[in-house]
Design a protein around this nucleic acid. Structure first.
Lengths: 337, 337
DNA sequence: TTGTACGCGTTATCAA
DNA sequence: TTGATAACGCGTACAA
């Protein structure tokens, strides 16, 4: 825990100037004898370059921020698992921000970017406020938004179409003959919540299904909230024959409640989730889920950001990932492999 | 994306020296008029202090590293969820390292600590080599190891007793009348793998159960490996009446195989996991699991590290978390709540 | 090929 | 109270 050696220490020990030390360490041409002495001194002292000083000089931190609402959500996890290796391979460290879906904390993360602790930021915002936009414009480092960024915002954007996702789920259930289909949504004032609500309304109308509020319950995007919402909806509409859930966690909560109430899945009530997380194959019966390509979106976001960091100066780019229905036992009634 | 303002820019605009700017920004006594001009200039320019320069001067990065084998393992996840808010509250950013259980990468993380990009490190190593020990001694920043650190290593240590954990599981199954109990372990050359193997041998002997290699299968700590290992063991010992698994992921793999082979759980085969992750309550039947206090260990580790960072200069400390059996449907045969 | 000296943006010391 | 200036550790013109 003593003070570490610096190039000055090495220079003294090797009897050369700090410039020579720096040159040797950076592989610039030097006389073999000088190189030998420097390397020996560095080795003996256990020298490790100070990344802070290097950053101050180079104006690059070699770090990238990743901001999400909750590290516990497996959809975000799938993103991290893709992003982290890509960043590491490119020489960047990953700074993780878990904002707890608190707007103020999200803004704080954006403001922090101004401190230059990171060379770029990937963010999955739950809401999109004026404040966000202001920070986007003020940002002095590239930002990639996973989710819906407003057109014209100076950020790269990886999006998916969860409206279509809800439609896929609803069409699937409709094709299976279900007609009393309930909807368990997340907070409608969040970006994903609003998109799913819109998709629900659209698709219901298109299929000639009732789309009124009597078939919808709202809670947070967690399992316990999903269970509570499912309980309320079942109390109100006991003859439901299917449930569309706004994410897998909510669906798992719904499965808990259905099991507790003795409703068979999928025989009595079919259930769909969304995000197609690892949890979907864990549930019993395995959960039919709409994949929004979390892993793919993570990969795309990392790619976009690395392009920027490599000096790509194009205008804002948008990558779109198509939703895809993954049918499993919770709607199909067959054993999972 | 233009160059950001510095205290020099502010000083020019406000017509004062950079020293005055710094004083105002740090709340040191200044004449009201000076303060006003500085704050106005700073506000107009959208000044944000450069954390890199600040770090170089203060010799503190306000970052903490957290190194784990795989972010996808929910036991680690439980730790992060505790660690991250504690660090944030104390003003530290979290730098996440996922090493893929590769020794070389773990060593690289320890070496990286020498670059002073972080003020401290929390690490959950899977193995413990001479190289690790060397790096611990050479480290110039405090390290907290979650898992078994050798006595005398200059690190704080949060440990649990997974030997006892295996004993708890085995005793539980024995008390339920099971006598042909198999063991699905992780790699025995890892710290947790070795501890669990030792616990298995000890506890089997104590209970008068066979403890030979014929009842053990080994794989990695993942679900697919658990399934493969369970398959091999069932082929060899078809009349098993229980399975002790080295973690929850392995147990979930075992549940997959048992279901596929038509063995009822727990009636035919009782199953226990370890780590008591969120997945345990997701499985069907819900998984009896030995809690090793992941969340608690994460909290303890963060606490130890923050103490150090606050200047605590004691010798290495050890915190031990007791394992605890959590009984659920996979052994008790009752509906989960 | 090598050394001197400056700058990166801050904080902190010392005179004034 | 304020300003000039010296660090912090590194990279790099520029001069030798």
């Amino acid at each position: 825990m003593t003070e570490g050696p610096t190039i000055t220490t090495i220079a003294q020990r090797a009897g050369v100037s700090i410039a020579s030390v720096s040159r040797v360490l950076n592989g610039l041409p030097t006389r073999p004898e000088t190189e030998r002495r420097v390397l020996q001194a560095a080795g003996e002292l256990g020298y490790v370059p100070n990344s802070v000083a290097r950053s101050l000089k180079s104006r690059r931190s070699n770090q990238v921020g990743f901001a999400i609402a909750d590290i516990g959500n497996p959809a975000y996890l799938a993103m991290i698992r893709e992003i982290q290796p890509l960043l590491k391979a490119a020489g960047y460290r990953l700074v993780l921000h878990s904002t707890g879906s608190d707007i103020a904390e999200e803004i704080e993360v954006l403001r922090g970017l101004g401190e230059r602790y990171a060379d770029g930021l990937i963010m999955v915002p739950l809401r999109m406020t004026e404040e966000h936009l202001k920070m986007f414009h003020a940002a002095r480092a590239p930002i990639v938004i996973i989710g819906a960024a407003p057109d014209g915002a100076p950020v790269d954007n990886v999006r998916t179409d969860s409206r279509t996702g809800v439609r896929l789920a609803l069409a699937h259930l409709h094709a299976l003959g279900r007609r009393r289909i309930g909807f368990l949504n997340g907070p409608p004032d969040t970006v994903p919540g609003a998109a799913r609500a819109a998709g629900w309304a659209e698709a219901s109308r298109a299929l000639g299904l009732p789309a009124g509020p009597e078939l919808t319950e709202v809670g947070d995007f967690y399992r316990a909230d999903g269970a509570a919402a499912a309980g309320r909806l079942l109390d109100r509409v006991p003859d439901l024959d299917a449930l569309v859930c706004a994410n897998d966690l909510i669906a798992l909560g719904a499965l808990d409640v259905l099991r507790r109430r003795g409703r068979r899945v999928p025989d009595d009530v079919a259930v769909t989730g969304m995000d197609d997380t690892d949890l979907a194959t864990l549930a019993w019966p395995a959960l039919t889920s709409v994949s929004l390509g979390s892993a793919e979106r993570g990969r795309a976001a990392a790619g976009l950001l690395l392009d920027r960091l490599a000096g790509d100066g194009q205008g804002p780019r948008v990558v779109t990932v198509e939703p895809r229905l993954v049918v499993r036992g919770s709607t199909a009634g067959q054993e999972t492999p």
